[in-house]
Simulated assay, not measured.
Amino acid sequence: MQVVSAAEVAQHLTWQGVIDRLRHTFVNGVESPPRHHHAMHRPDGEATMLLMPAWEAAGYIGVKMVNVFPQNAEHGVPAISGLYLLSEGKHGQPLACIDGSELTRRRTAAASALAAQALANEDADTLLVVGTGKLAPMVIEAHASVRPIKRVLIWGRNPNKAAAIAEEYADRFATQVVDALPDAVAEADIISCVTLSTQPIIKGEWLTPGTHVDLIGAFRPQMRETDAACLGRAQVFVDTYSGAKGEAGDILQAIEEGAFQFDAIQAELAEVLSGAKPGRSGKEAITLFKSVGASLEDLAAAIELWESLPKHHS
């Protein structure tokens, strides 16, 4: 069995490769039971173990194990860590144990880019990234692989972090740290939110026709990055209905406020990609994609990585 480090994931998992693989997997489907949540009582507080299995009908089998330790912040250690175990489908033999954080980071951004490829206007060239964590650089790279991005605007609560990202990508794009979010939102063709916010950051009244809004951050019901007006003004799409129903804070809170209904969601990503349901209705429409992540994405990314690795001696 091969152990695959974060550096190897970053080196071998290309954006084009993983986005194409995700498209194939969303359209063709895999078996993916609901994820398992296990509360763990540790001496210094509560922790959670998440298990996310998925398998192809006659092919690869995979499971992601994630440990969530909120108390790690006090020790300067990441709160979330994990690994992905990929097995072959014929005899169930393990193939690879893959760094879970890097795989997740890249598949998350790739899923958003896949949605943007289907939903954003083809000439979208200005990207606004809201948030400065580990996902921010990933969404810049992923979206730039599917749309002709020329300008990247970056907003974050920590201006130093925003400046560091702007500097990192200054040789590839016209980058700019922004303070005035309403102006930046109005200028952007694609807005990608990667925060852990529990309060709306983006307001619907700021959106301009033709914009594509990509919401990644709020993966728990009590989190949200947008107000209900954003959903009200947009054609709303989700990665999966089941994930959205359970965990998409932006949608669940807007429903709670009586400002949105679940059946107003236009489609889940697989329906748009397969042509079963339409995407953007026209150039002036505002589209919104809300993702919370799905185990099929991890399986797709793990398969793409495994098949891209230099060939191994068993």
Rank of each mutant, 00 (worst) to 15 (best):
M1P: 12
Q2V: 11
Q2E: 15
V4Y: 04
A7S: 14
Q11L: 13
L13G: 01
W15G: 01
G17K: 09
V18K: 03
R21Y: 04
R21N: 12
R21P: 07
L22C: 02
H24N: 12
S32K: 14
P33Q: 10
A39W: 08
G45W: 12
E46W: 03
A47F: 09
M49V: 14
L50S: 06
W55K: 13
A57G: 13
Y60H: 15
G76E: 00
P78G: 01
P78T: 09
L85C: 13
S87W: 12
E88F: 10
G89Q: 11
G92P: 07
P94N: 10
A96T: 01
G100L: 00
G100D: 08
L103Y: 04
T104V: 05
R105W: 11
R106P: 05
R106K: 14
T108C: 00
A109G: 12
A110M: 02
L114P: 02
A116K: 02
A120E: 09
E122W: 11
E122Q: 15
D123C: 02
D123L: 11
A124M: 04
D125C: 13
V130Y: 10
G131K: 05
T132V: 10
L135G: 01
M138R: 14
I140S: 07
H143T: 06
A144M: 12
A144K: 07
V146H: 03
P148A: 05
P148G: 10
K150F: 00
R151T: 13
R151I: 08
V152G: 00
L153N: 04
I154G: 03
R157D: 11
N158I: 09
P159C: 10
A163Y: 01
I165S: 07
A166H: 03
A166R: 08
E167L: 10
Y169V: 02
D171T: 13
R172F: 04
R172D: 06
R172Y: 00
F173H: 11
V177N: 10
D183H: 07
A186P: 10
D189Y: 08
V194G: 08
V194E: 04
T195N: 03
P200K: 13
I201P: 11
I202E: 09
I202F: 06
L207F: 03
L215H: 08
L215S: 07
I216L: 14
G217C: 08
R224M: 07
T226Q: 05
D227M: 08
C230A: 06
L231C: 08
L231A: 05
L231F: 12
A234D: 09
F237A: 01
T240I: 00
S242M: 07
G243S: 05
G243P: 00
G246R: 15
E247M: 02
A248N: 06
D250N: 14
L252Q: 00
I255L: 04
I255Y: 08
E256L: 04
E257R: 14
G258E: 12
G258V: 00
F260S: 04
F260D: 02
Q261S: 15
I265D: 01
Q266T: 02
Q266I: 08
A267N: 02
V272M: 02
V272G: 03
P278I: 07
P278F: 10
R280D: 10
S281H: 11
E284I: 05
E284D: 15
L288V: 07
F289R: 08
K290T: 07
V292K: 05
L296Q: 09
E297G: 05
L299F: 10
A300L: 08
A301V: 06
A301C: 01
A302F: 01
E304H: 06
L305V: 06
L305C: 11
L309V: 09
K311G: 04
H313L: 13
